[in-house]
């Protein structure tokens, strides 16, 4: 019974590849998501998902359906959107989210136009991917992207956290806030792009944001929230893939729904600020 439920599905090569890809993404994306939440940029990942489209379309046009060509195009386009939004906001004292909104709409329209003109790629495939068709090339891409994202975030972690909490202090002591922000955005773009080819952008963003949003119910400190988010992403990946196999639903949405379930469970029964934690115990003496 246990063997049928948990082991047999992964006897299939495609399931093992899908799991490996999801695990790589689960290690890399949630920490980025936690920082995005703290910087009040939760919707940015969503904007980027649209922002990378023209780059992916151009990549597909020039490089055929090579994952690497599309990823490179997407990375360039996403980075352009992120850097331009960050630069516009800082140079003109505007709000970054509004610059993002403007840029991603333009990028999305350009992407759709390019896709329509060249018939280079199927848009549904772009959004939802096909987790169960992860080939070696795509797996390598995800692994490379995840490795860079984890190492990169570890390197910029200290200045990034300080800049998120108290940007003026960091600038006042000569810490150059903008550099860390742009480096961080580059990692986010990388992660969004890395997940798209096999997993679809919905999936890479779902694994980035849903566990990150749920994480605040599990710890009052940043390291604890990151650990919780990664753990939830891993659980969601495994549960989603198994549900997909047994119930015959598409794997991408299944993983995201599993992550969504964990998010709901965190709201209800998380260690802090949840429905349960508010009602169960008597108040303390002091």
């Amino acid at each position: 019974m246990m063997r049928e439920l948990f082991y047999d599905p992964f006897a299939m090569g495609f399931m093992r590849r899908a799991l490996a890809g999801c695990v790589a993404l689960s290690l890399a994306a949630p920490p980025l998501g936690v920082v995005l939440v703290l910087r009040r940029m939760s919707m940015t990942s969503d904007s980027l998902q649209h922002g990378i489209l023209p780059g992916i379309a151009v990549g597909a046009m020039l490089g055929g359906l090579s994952v690497w060509a599309m990823a490179l195009g997407g990375f360039v386009a996403g980075l352009a959107v992120a850097l331009l939004a960050g630069w516009l906001a800082r140079a003109t004292n505007g709000r970054e989210d509004s610059q993002f909104a403007g840029l991603y709409l333009v990028a999305l329209a350009a992407g759709v136009a390019i896709v329509a003109a060249t018939r280079s790629i199927d848009l549904t495939h772009l959004l939802f991917g096909s987790v169960l068709a992860v080939d070696d090339s795509a797996l390598l891409l995800i692994a490379a992207v995840a490795s860079i994202a984890i190492a990169g975030l570890a390197i910029i972690w200290r200045p990034l956290v300080m800049e998120s909490f108290d940007p003026f202090f960091l600038r006042a002591v000569g810490g150059r806030g903008g550099v860390w922000h742009l480096a961080f955005m580059a990692l986010v773009v990388l992660c969004v792009v890395g997940g798209f080819a096999a997993l679809g952008t919905l999936m890479s963003i779902g694994l980035m944001m849903l566990p990150a949003v749920a994480a605040r119910h599990w710890s009052t400190e940043l390291p604890g929230q990151v650990r919780a988010a990664v753990l939830m992403a891993l659980i969601a990946s495994l549960a989603g893939l198994l549900a997909s196999y047994h119930a015959d639903i598409p794997a991408g949405p299944a993983v995201i729904l599993a992550a969504g379930t964990l998010w709901a469970a965190s709201h209800l029964a998380g260690r802090r600020e949840s429905v349960l934690s508010r009602m169960r115990r008597p108040h303390l003496h002091a």
């Binding site: 956290v161 998120s164 909490f165 108290d166 003026f168 400190e221 940043l222 929230q225």
Partner: peptide
């Protein structure tokens, strides 16, 4: 800085 300019909800010890 003026204390009101900081995010007091930030998860930091």
């Amino acid at each position: 800085p003026q204390a009101s300019t900081l995010d007091r909800g930030f998860p930091i010890a």
